[in-house]
Design a protein around this nucleic acid. Structure first.
Length: 296
DNA sequence: AATCTCAACAACCGCAATCTG
DNA sequence: ACAGATTGCGGTTGTTGAGAT
């Protein structure tokens, strides 16, 4: 932290050469990016909204985690990557389970979703099993163990997506805006690319369930997209090319306001004065052994 | 209470791009 | 133009903690 305060988040190799730490500059940088950097949402689970963003952007960008993370304030590429691989593992397990016992009923937890579950386009999952691994990667599970249900990335009901075309990736935002991220994610002071409106239902349902019901009501899962007036269908790819930010394809391009690299460079010199500094050794207190974890 | 399973997280590794002398 | 150093990114693996059995 002191090094970053003094030199900014670069010149990592000098940390080692100056004997400050025995770690490589590379791992110092990683530690900074993933843990020490200010305004990270450490310990916060991905909100439904963040999950949706990841799913959408992963489909568009592929495994460009760094790029995707620029749309998720407070999340690092590592966060996104870990989140995605967790989902992938879950999906793999579930597909396998389905394969080995196709007639076996769903676990009680999942069948709690009750009638809605049987409307899901299960052929979607099965079809993807035969496709390439990347294809499978891009198509997360409809059914989630820990949460009741998560839907495939597409098609998404356009009525539920309100994309703000003025949105810029986090790195492009003015520092004072991007530095103001609070937990939980639902309280974003910053707009995220997708902000769905949840339908109001008489029965208390989880947000996930509400979303699912909304989609089912619109028949979007099985019939693709419909125009707002209900006539005809909309090509999902078409829709995404319109819905997703044009500037996405320009990230790193010449139209950028700022490239990620220059992000910190543009900060005022005293910016890091506000970053919590390490306590002096005299203030260190012993950490109970069972609480000890990667403290550095 | 002990053990097992699994999701989440942290860190390492290798590669590619970029920078610098 | 070139080589070495540095930085950034994505894949992978190891660790931990919580919940289930």
């Amino acid at each position: 932290m002191n090094h970053v305060n003094k030199y900014g988040p670069r010149d990592w190799s000098s940390i080692r050469s100056k004997g400050l730490l025995c770690r490589t500059g590379k791992s110092c940088r990683l530690r900074w990016v993933n843990k020490l950097r200010p305004n990270l949402k450490n310990g916060c689970k991905f909100s439904l909204e963040e999950e949706r963003i990841v799913i959408e952007l992963q489909e568009q960008f592929g495994n460009k985690w760094a790029r995707i993370s620029t749309y998720l304030p407070g999340r690092t590429d590592n966060d996104v990557k870990n989140f995605w691989s967790s989902r992938k593992k879950r999906l793999a397990r579930m597909l396998q389970a389905k394969h080995t016992s196709p007639s076996s009923p769903l676990p009680a937890k999942q069948s709690n979703s009750g009638d809605t579950l049987r409307y899901l386009p299960l052929t979607w999952e099965i079809a993807n099993e035969a496709s390439s691994s990347t294809q499978v990667d891009e198509q997360p599970s409809c059914v989630d163990q820990s949460r009741e249900m998560l839907l495939p990335p597409g098609p998404i009901d356009p009525c539920l997506i309100h994309y703000n075309p003025n949105l810029l990736p986090l790195e492009m935002m003015a520092p004072e805006k991007s530095m103001n991220v609070d937990c939980p994610a639902a309280d974003f002071p910053i707009q995220v690319p997708f902000a769905p409106t949840m339908p109001v239902l008489p029965v208390p349902l989880s947000p996930e369930s509400q979303e699912l019901v909304a989609r089912l009501d619109n028949g979007c899962l099985t019939h693709g997209f419909e125009q707002e007036d209900g006539t005809g269908s909309v090509d999902p790819e078409m829709m995404f090319s319109q819905e997703l930010p044009q500037q996405n394809s320009d990230v790193g391009g010449e139209n950028n306001l700022a490239a990620p690299d220059s992000f910190f460079d543009d900060f005022p010199a005293d910016m890091f004065d506000h970053i919590e500094s390490l306590p002096s050794p005299s203030n260190w207190r012993p950490i109970p052994r069972d609480k000890m974890r990667h403290t550095e």
